[in-house]
């Protein structure tokens, strides 16, 4: 194994692989994560994409990728990865292509696909031991269709289909655990606002084989209703408040980066229009307490 572990920000690449000129929103947290990930993965990759915002990355005749790309459908990107991986393996075996021509197969989907429509395809791919990396950029809703709630939407968030006074009634699905329950090689959560942690994890994943799955929380200015300049601030708060635990599943164990001093969850919520009803016209103390309690309970369980 090639142990070039990222230690400092200075180890991060300062030239960037992902091309400029994409149609993603200004300040897109998903794009931020993708460009950081791509720098580590390198260009010898083929992204297999499901329907979502990122589908618009490659709109004829423009693509930001220096490697390859295949758009499939909302439900079946992992199956597309299966086809590409198997075909590359067959071609390698038959000596039709050289080892240098091989590519890392990377699924790229949103949360709507990962947590919902594509979950069965992902489950199948993991259970078949497919050698691939899955990147889910989680903007906590069906962003491309206008941010309706998805299975990844957090409790109380307003979305285009949960506009009522208490927002989304459901709770964010625990995809990390669902994935981990399949016992894949690697599962990790990352966020673009913590580039060093992200780079380390992607590098780790890159050096493994088998199913390696990454969820990147992706602050989304229009979907979460905040000014694009705050994408990184909000991302950092997601981690500092403990709302977005940075963790890894490896060798059957889950390892957390435990935040030193967790700041109150409301610091994170307050910055986003989708939670504004928790603060105005009147603070919803009950809901805020409940949300804080859930996060506290999570971390209490971790430290036990």
């Amino acid at each position: 194994m090639n142990e070039v572990v990222m230690q400092h920000m200075t180890d991060l690449p300062s030239t960037h692989l992902l091309g400029t000129g994409t149609p993603m929103c200004s300040g897109c947290g998903g794009l931020e994560a993708l460009h950081e990930i791509y720098d580590v993965l390198g260009k010898n990759t083929v992204f297999v994409n499901a329907a979502g915002c990122m589908t618009l990355l490659s709109v004829y005749p423009f693509t930001p990728f220096r490697g390859s790309w295949l758009y499939t459908a909302m439900a079946s990107a992992p199956a597309g990865a299966q086809g590409v991986r198997d075909a590359l393996d067959i071609l390698l075996e038959q000596k039709c292509i050289k080892k240098e021509e091989d590519l890392e197969v990377v699924v790229l989907t949103g949360d709507g696909s990962a947590y919902g429509m594509g979950l069965s395809a992902t489950s199948g791919a993991i259970e078949r031991g497919l050698d691939f990396i899955y990147i889910c950029y989680d903007n906590e809703g069906y962003g491309n269709t206008g941010q309706q709630f998805s299975a990844a939407t957090p409790h109380a968030a307003k979305t285009a289909t949960s506009r009522g006074s208490s927002g989304f009634a459901g709770y964010k699905k625990d995809l990390f655990s669902i994935w981990a329950a399949h016992k894949p090689s690697y599962v990790a959560t990352v966020i673009g606002s913590e580039p060093l942690d992200l780079a380390r994890k992607i590098e780790k994943a890159k050096q493994m084989k088998g199913p390696r799955l990454i969820i990147a929380l992706a602050p989304c200015p229009p979907g979460w209703d905040f000014n694009p300049r705050d994408t990184v601030d909000i991302g950092k708060l997601a981690v500092k408040t403990g709302v977005w635990p940075l963790k890894e599943y490896i060798d059957g164990k889950v390892i957390h980066n435990i935040p030193h001093h967790r700041v109150p969850v409301e610091d994170y919520l307050q910055k986003q229009g989708r939670f504004v009803h928790l603060f105005t016209p009147k603070r919803n103390e009950e809901m805020l307490n409940e949300m804080q309690a859930r996060v506290d309970a999570y971390w209490d369980a971790v430290s036990e």
Binding site: H8, L12, S14, H16, T22, M24, S26, H35, G192
Partner: peptide, 17 residues
């Protein structure tokens, strides 16, 4: 000339060094 914070976090790869 810090650790290229700006270059790393710019979502659009619009800052190079």
């Amino acid at each position: 000339n810090c650790w290229w914070v700006c270059s790393t976090i710019c979502p659009d790869s619009a800052i190079s060094v």
